[in-house]
C-alpha cells in the first residue's frame, strides 16, 4: 500500500505541517467566538424561562449535541445554500471556510449554552443577595460578583470544549479545507509515506492540546485564587470535580439530546 517506513519522513512532514497549524487555530478560535455568541443567546431564554424561545433553544441544544459533527458539517455545507436560495440569497461564492466555522460554531454553541447555564446557576444565590445587601445595583452585582465566579467555574468547561473543537477540526478536510489533516493527506500523494505523515500529524495535535491544557490550568489557578485549596487535590481529568460546588442535575454538559 505505502512505501517502506522511514523515520526521517516524520521529521520532514512535521516541519511541513507546522505552517498549517494557523488555519486549524483560525477555525478553532473563530468557531469558539461564534459559539460564545450563539451560546449566550441560547442560554438566556432558558435562564429566564421565556416560554416559546426556551423550547426553541432546547431543540437547538438537543440537536447539536445529539448528532455527529461530521453530519452537521455536511448538513450546513449543503443545506444552508439551499435554504438561503429560498429567500433569494446567493452564497455560492462564499468560501468553504465560512461554512466550516459556522458548523463548528453552532456545534460549540450548544455546549457553551449548557456551560453558561451551569456556571451561572452554580454561583451561590447568597452571593447576589449579599451584594444587594451592601447596596450594589443589579448590574454591579453581576459584573463584580457573579461574573468573576461564573468565569472561574466555566474555565474547565471551556477548556475541554476548545480542545475538543481542536480535535474536531480534523474533519474539516472532508469539505476540502486545507488544515492540518487535509495537508497531511496531500503531503503523501507523491511519496506515499502514509504512516510517517500521520504520525507527524498526531504529534502536532498532541503538542497543541498539551499546550492548551497547560494554559488553561494556569488560567484556572489564577482565577481560583479566592477559592479554597480543597478542589485542587482530587481532580480527575474526565470527571473534574467541578470545584467544590454542586451543579444542577438537569444541566447536560455531555453529548446527548435528552434536554429536549
Amino acid at each position: 500500500m505505502g512505501a517502506q517506513f522511514d523515520i526521517a519522513y516524520v521529521y520532514d512532514y512535521f516541519l511541513k505541517l507546522l505552517p498549517f497549524i494557523r488555519i486549524s487555530l483560525v477555525i478553532v478560535i473563530s468557531s469558539i467566538f461564534v459559539g460564545l455568541g450563539v451560546g449566550f443567546l441560547v442560554a438566556l431564554p432558558r435562564l429566564y424561562k421565556i416560554s416559546v424561545l426556551q423550547r426553541i433553544s432546547q431543540v437547538y441544544a438537543s440537536f447539536f449535541r445529539g448528532t455527529p459533527i461530521l453530519i452537521q458539517l455536511f448538513l450546513i455545507y449543503y443545506g444552508l445554500p439551499e435554504i438561503l436560495k429560498l429567500v433569494n440569497v446567493d452564497v455560492s461564492k462564499v468560501p468553504v471556510l465560512f461554512f466550516v466555522i459556522l458548523a463548528y460554531g453552532l456545534h460549540a454553541g450548544a455546549y457553551i449554552s449548557e456551560g453558561i447555564r451551569a456556571a451561572v446557576t452554580a454561583v451561590d444565590r447568597g452571593q447576589v443577595e449579599a451584594a444587594y445587601a451592601v447596596g450594589m445595583t443589579g448590574f454591579q452585582a453581576f459584573t463584580r460578583i457573579v461574573f468573576p465566579q461564573a468565569l472561574a467555574i466555566s474555565i474547565p468547561i471551556l477548556a475541554n470544549l476548545i480542545i475538543a473543537t481542536l480535535k474536531d477540526t480534523s474533519l474539516a478536510f472532508t469539505l476540502g479545507v486545507m488544515e492540518l489533516t487535509g495537508k497531511s493527506q496531500t503531503l503523501v500523494t507523491v511519496s506515499r509515506h502514509f504512516v510517517e505523515s500521520y504520525i507527524a500529524l498526531a504529534l502536532v495535535y498532541f503538542i497543541l492540546s498539551l499546550i492548551l491544557e497547560r494554559l488553561f490550568n494556569l488560567a484556572e489557578r489564577r482565577l481560583l485564587r479566592h477559592e479554597s485549596l480543597v478542589s485542587k487535590k482530587d481532580k480527575v481529568p474526565m470527571g473534574r470535580k467541578w470545584l467544590n460546588r454542586t451543579l444542577e442535575a438537569e444541566i447536560a454538559l455531555s453529548k446527548g439530546g435528552s434536554s429536549l
Partner: peptide, 21 residues
C-alpha cells in the same frame, strides 16, 4: 494522554495505514 490528546481520525488513519505494514 496520547490518545486523548489526538483526534480520533488520526488513530483510524494510523491503524489503517500502519497495521498492514
Amino acid at each position: 494522554t496520547f490518545i486523548r490528546g489526538t483526534p480520533m481520525l488520526t488513530h483510524l488513519l494510523l491503524i489503517y495505514f500502519g497495521l498492514p505494514l
